[in-house]
């Protein structure tokens, strides 16, 4: 997007939520940092963000895009399956917030 016409820069700040910080931590660990297993590269992270639909940049937050990309990579690499993810998401939605995630959020 370098050099394309765009609007005034609004010096906006955003205090990151705990879940966003955990997405950041997952990226570090899955990239092999801090004793994590190297299961992705930052280039894959970027590639999968670029692959999002054109309006994703306006519609999604920064860590929305990251968590989507990281999850895609884990599926592409066979670390998790789409089916497992679907079941897990349904389970958590039904569960409401677990005590652990409520505490950590």
């Amino acid at each position: 997007m370098g050099g394309l016409p765009a609007g005034k820069v609004e010096p906006t700040e955003h205090d990151y939520g705990e879940w966003e910080r955990r997405v950041d931590a997952l990226m570090v660990l899955l990239s092999g940092g801090k004793g994590g297993k190297r299961l992705m590269t930052v280039d894959e992270l970027r590639k999968n963000i670029e692959a999002l639909p054109p309006d994703a940049y306006d519609r999604m937050g920064y860590y929305d895009r990251w968590v989507t990309s990281i999850t895609q990579i884990m599926i592409q690499r066979g670390v998790i399956t789409t089916e497992e993810l679907g079941l897990k998401m349904a389970e958590i939605e039904n569960r409401g917030q677990s005590p652990i995630s409520a505490k950590a959020s």
Binding site: T41, V42, D43, E44, R46, K47, Q76, R77
Partner: peptide, 13 residues
């Protein structure tokens, strides 16, 4: 540095 065009595709770079 590892070639990002390769690293992005699950290869060694």
């Amino acid at each position: 540095f590892g070639n990002p065009e390769e690293l992005a595709q699950q290869r060694s770079g």
